[in-house]
Structure formats: C-alpha cells, structure tokens
Computed example of a mutant assay.
Amino acid sequence: MRVEIWSDIACPWCYIGKARFEKGLAAFAHRDEIEVVHRSFELDPRAPKGVTGPVVEMLAKKYGRTVDEARGMEEHVAAAARAEGLAYVTEGRDNGSTFDIHRLLHLAAAHGRRDALLDLAYRANFAEERSVFDPEVLIALAVEAGLDEAEARAVLADGTAYADEVRADEREAAELGANSVPFFVLDRRFGVSGGQPAEVFTRALEQAWQGRELVAETPAGEACDPDGACAVPQA
C-alpha cells in the first residue's frame, strides 16, 4: 500500500507530522508493506527567489500579532516538536521560497535519497542555525544525503530542472482537495489532514489496509495553509 505525503520544508507541522506519522507507521502490523512517497507543496509559491526574512516577523504579520506574541507562538510549536523528541530553534530562522528545495528533493528522489534529504532539510531549518534558503547550505545537505555535488549544483543552476515535477505535485494536491499541509493520502482512497497524533495514523493505516472509510469525526490536525500561516496550540 502506498502513502503519499504532501509537505513543505517551511511548515513546522510537516516536520512534526512526519515524526508522528513514522511513529504511527512503526506501530502498524503491515509497516514493511507500506511505500511512503513524499510530494511537493509550496506554502507560498509566489515568494520571490533569493528574498528571505525572519520567521517571527512573518508570523506577526500573518496573524496580526506583535513580535513578542509571535515569539510565543513559536514557543508553543517548539513545545509540540520537543514532545516528539525533535529539536526546534525558535530564534534566527529564515522564511522564503522553497521552490529550489523541492526541485532538489526531486533529484534526490531520482536517486532514492529523498527521505534522507528531507530529514536533513527539516533538521537544518528547524533544529539548527542553518538557512535552507542559502544555495551553499542546500548543496552541503544534498552531499550529506548522498547526492553528487556537481549534479546538485547543476540542478540548482538550471531553474527548469525538476520544475515540472514540483508543479505536477502541486496540481495533484489541488485536485485531491489539499488546502493545507501536511496532507496524507493512503492508497489513493483515504486522506488524513494535519499533524495528527501517532495513534491516529496507526488507525488510519489499519482502516485503509482493510478498505474501510476513515473515521469521519477525526478532527483535522495542526497544519500550515497556502498563505504560510500555521495553526498553533494556544496557551
């Protein structure tokens, strides 16, 4: 059975949701028979390349909050991440276009290294003081994931390389009705939206495996919408 996951490196709930899904998958009896495929989704496809800004200021603008309130929102998300055993840096992170990251992830997929690069990119963006919007950081991450440096540089230098693949993923997400990420599609029949708890993913996998409808009353998990705004737990 195939599970497809639409996500964006800029989305903290995608970072958290990936960890929760993997815990849910680990508890699933048929986990060795599940193929996981990661798909591209840009929270802000209109973001200009090469232009970055502080995440905290972006959150303040999106939510109409003060910078101090935005910092508090980041702390709440950080607490959710840390509860899953994930490191999370709340200060000094950048925000910008993720298109090149997605193109490089498609290159990694062609070499069977997408999951490795995705984990490294999440870690760099959320847990380390490394900007994934810096091309040299992206190259270093690609090499760490096992990609050839010259090939990775060639992809970043050619703005059309894997661009069609990124856009195709995004069109498919729209066709499936995904209006926030992370978005999980199980066996092309069932959808799970948001960074749900691990047990929700386990139950969804079990139900999809048996061909049943997913539980209708399951609430949407925390997610990030196409405007770049991310739902956060409130104090």
Rank of each mutant, 00 (worst) to 15 (best):
K23A: 15
D32T: 14
W13V: 08
V67P: 00
F201S: 01
G92V: 04
V37R: 14
Q210T: 08
V166K: 02
R71N: 11
E206I: 02
C11K: 09
A229L: 08
R2Q: 12
Q196N: 06
R31W: 00
R189H: 12
L25H: 03
D100V: 07
F28R: 00
E74A: 10
P197F: 03
G194E: 07
R46D: 15
I9N: 06
D94F: 07
W209M: 00
V192N: 01
P197A: 03
V51G: 03
I5M: 15
C14Y: 07
E4S: 14
G146L: 02
L59A: 08
H38G: 11
L43Y: 10
M58E: 14
R2N: 13
P233W: 01
F201N: 02
E136T: 10
P48N: 09
E217H: 11
L138E: 12
E222G: 13
G191A: 15
V181L: 10
R103L: 09
C224Y: 04
L205K: 00
A79L: 09
A140K: 11
D169W: 07
A220D: 12
I139F: 12
R189K: 15
G195C: 04
H30R: 15
L107I: 04
G159I: 12
H76W: 04
H106K: 13
H106Y: 11
D225I: 06
Q207D: 13
F183Q: 05
T52W: 07
A163N: 07
F41D: 05
A223M: 11
Y88P: 02
I9E: 01
D68Q: 14
E217G: 01
A178P: 00
H102T: 12
A157H: 11
D68H: 06
